[in-house]
Nucleic acid binder design. Structure first.
Length: 611
DNA sequence: AACCTTGGTGCTTCCGTGGC
DNA sequence: GCCACGGAAGCACCAAGGTT
């Protein structure tokens, strides 16, 4: 804080530079209550510090920064008296000496006692890639106490912590190695490397357009928005300041999304050129909003209303003249509702799923000149609902109807949408978690070395695993596009089918009348009765038929039985007749034998005759 | 006021290694 | 091969500041 003043004013060692506690607390970002003590301590430490150099004659010169410090108890600050040599050096070697020009943020981040000294040495030798320094020189330059003659303590407590802090908090990586003579360390070789610059998002917008939100990462934007709102200059522009802080941060974020100056995941960059902005940059838009907000206002006033006007994705007007008319009528409706001057700026987005219009409205009541959002969108919980109904009337001629009143449908907020994108691991089909193997510590390996090794191994493994997931994500995106097209084709087919079916559906609807239904039911009842009678008759006939069939079968059986009996009788008669004939034959033969004379026996064996 | 965390300091112990 | 020295690691203690 003091050195810029010492550099730029023509003061001598007798002129003090006054640093107040309040300035000190602001600059260092600490509470005012602790700033008094901190300033006193800082002054004390600076008073004890010295530096050295070799003059033209080759003599070593040691010099203190300050020759006097006065704590002004009554004025809440300290008076610093720089030595003439320091003042001279600051003035004359300003251009060559980077030490006095380091950013305050860098200086404040270096908390260790010797970090700043090492940082200074490193920056001085950065272009050469590093520097070598003997132990004696190091002790002299840093003003190290004798206790650090123990090299282990010097490394452990001075060099390593300082280098770690510099590497973690500044724009350079600083490392070191021993310089030995025999086995003794006689100095150190420090290596300085510039860190790679942080990546920026290329938005493809006009490079000639100056823009506060251009080429920043998401976190940078957030930080910037927040910091911007804290700047006295911005607060001054905001007339009052305090209540503009969150407002500028919020609107800044909204505008950078609106003007596509930040990465917008749900937008198709190929269609971004189709977007229309009433004011061509977000900076102009922010200025216009700010200019419209009255200087005198309540602390809790609503400063701006962001409107989003759209219609169902299925509407057939998208991409036709109807779309243009829709947005024109929407704007006209907003201007009628809020007054033309209050509708500060409008934007049409055509690069998201459904085209929509975004309008920034400052709710100034023309009658009183005051902010009065309640007049337009407050008062009753039905106001917004009524607004939807009014708007529906405005665009009814375009074939649009009001949405379902009192619908419980819940939109996916942008936050939820992005959270879902980020939590892709929970999606089905996506592998969960990243895995990595932690290497085993080597024998006698130090914790620091092992820690670095583990960290490097984990980073390598995680990168290896992330890369294919990116590929898969791209593949999924392409698949999604394909499915979207299929869905679109299916919708077209469905529309065609509905068109074809329409005449039939109309006929059905035409006959869909209560009396017809009664008649239909009557006819059905009659038919049912007829059916029941017919069924009964059918059953009767069937019973008769079965009875007849039974009778026929019985008759047949009787007849068969009779025939069998007759057969038996005939067989019996036949047998009796045979027996009678046989008897008659025997009787005839007996009679013949009795009547014939007796013949001699001539030994004829063939002669057979009964005896 | 008690407790915890962080950073600094002094000291000891252990082990590897270069010199003799 | 012995030994003194350098370097690494860890313990104990203290002070200051923050948290509960």
């Amino acid at each position: 804080m003091a050195t810029p003043l010492a550099r730029t004013t023509k003061i001598s060692s007798n002129d003090p530079i006054f640093i107040s506690s309040s300035d000190f607390s602001k600059e260092c970002g600490i509470d005012l209550s602790t700033a008094y003590t901190a300033l006193e301590l800082a002054s004390e430490r600076l008073f004890t510090r010295f530096f050295g150099y070799t003059n033209a004659e080759g003599d070593r010169v040691k010099m203190r920064w300050l020759n006097k410090v006065i704590y002004k108890a009554g004025q809440g600050g300290s008076e610093l008296y720089f030595t003439d040599e320091v003042l001279l050096l600051l003035r004359e070697f300003d251009a060559l000496n980077p030490y006095t020009k380091y950013k305050k943020e860098v200086v404040l981040r270096l908390k260790k006692d010797y970090s700043l000294d090492f940082y200074h040495l490193a920056k001085k030798h950065q272009t050469m890639g590093g520097f070598q320094i003997s132990l004696d020189e190091l002790f002299q330059q840093l003003g190290l106490p004798e206790s650090y003659q123990d090299l282990s303590n010097l490394k452990k407590r001075v060099i390593k912590p300082s280098l770690d802090e510099i590497t973690a908090n500044t724009d350079i990586d600083l490392s070191y190695e021993n310089v030995k003579r025999g086995r003794s360390v006689v100095g150190f070789k420090f290596t300085v490397k510039e860190k790679p610059k942080p990546k920026v998002i290329e938005t493809g917008r006009d490079p000639n357009t100056p823009d506060l939100f251009h080429k920043m990462t998401e976190s940078q934007l957030d930080t910037f928005s927040s910091k911007l709102s804290e700047l006295p200059e911005v607060q001054k522009m905001a007339h009052v300041g305090e209540d503009m802080k969150p407002f500028i941060a919020h609107v800044g974020g909204s505008l950078s999304h609106n003007y596509r100056n930040r990465e917008t995941l749900n937008a198709d960059s190929d269609r971004t050129h189709l977007n229309e902005h009433e004011l061509d940059t977000n900076e102009k838009c922010m200025t216009a909003i700010r200019d419209r907000i009255p200087e005198k206002r309540r602390k809790d006033a609503v400063l701006c209303i962001e409107h989003l006007v759209t219609a169902s994705p299925e509407w057939d007007g998208w991409g036709t003249e109807k779309e243009t008319a829709f947005f024109e009528q929407s704007k006209k409706w907003l201007e009628n509702k809020y007054g033309k001057n209050n509708v500060v700026s409008t934007t049409i987005h055509r690069d998201e799923t459904t085209p929509h219009l975004v309008a920034y409205v400052v709710p100034v009541d023309e009658a009183t000149g005051r902010l009065n959002a309640k007049k337009y969108i407050g008062g009753s919980r039905h106001t917004l609902s009524q607004m939807q109904t009014d708007f529906a009337v405005e665009v009814k001629d375009l074939g649009l109807d009001r949405g379902v009143q009192g619908s419980k449908a819940k939109h996916t907020s942008i936050k939820e949408y992005y959270e879902k994108l980020n939590n892709y691991e929970n999606e089905p089909g996506i592998e969960k978690g990243l895995t990595y193997e932690i290497p085993e510590p080597e024998f006698l390996e130090s914790k620091n070395t092992y820690g670095e090794r583990v960290a490097n191994a984990m980073i390598d493994q995680i990168f290896d695993q992330i890369a294919p997931r990116f590929d898969r994500a791209n593949a999924l995106a392409s698949q999604t596009e394909k499915l979207k097209k299929e869905l679109s084709d299916t919708k077209k087919t469905l529309d065609e089918v509905q068109q074809r079916a329409k005449p039939y559906l109309d006929i059905i609807n035409e006959y869909n009348h209560p009396n017809l239904e009664k008649e239909f039911n009557k006819q059905v009842a009659k038919l049912k009765d007829n059916f029941d009678s017919a069924l009964e008759h059918h059953r009767f006939l069937k019973r008769q038929e079965e009875q007849e069939r039974f009778n026929q079968q019985r008759e047949l059986r009787n007849q068969l039985h009779l025939e069998q009996e007759q057969k038996k009788q005939l067989a019996e008669q036949e047998r009796q007749e045979k027996e009678r004939l046989a008897l008659l034959r025997r009787q005839e033969l007996e009679k013949q034998r009795k009547n014939e004379p007796k013949k001699p026996d001539n030994g004829n064996d063939n002669d057979y005759s009964p005896s």
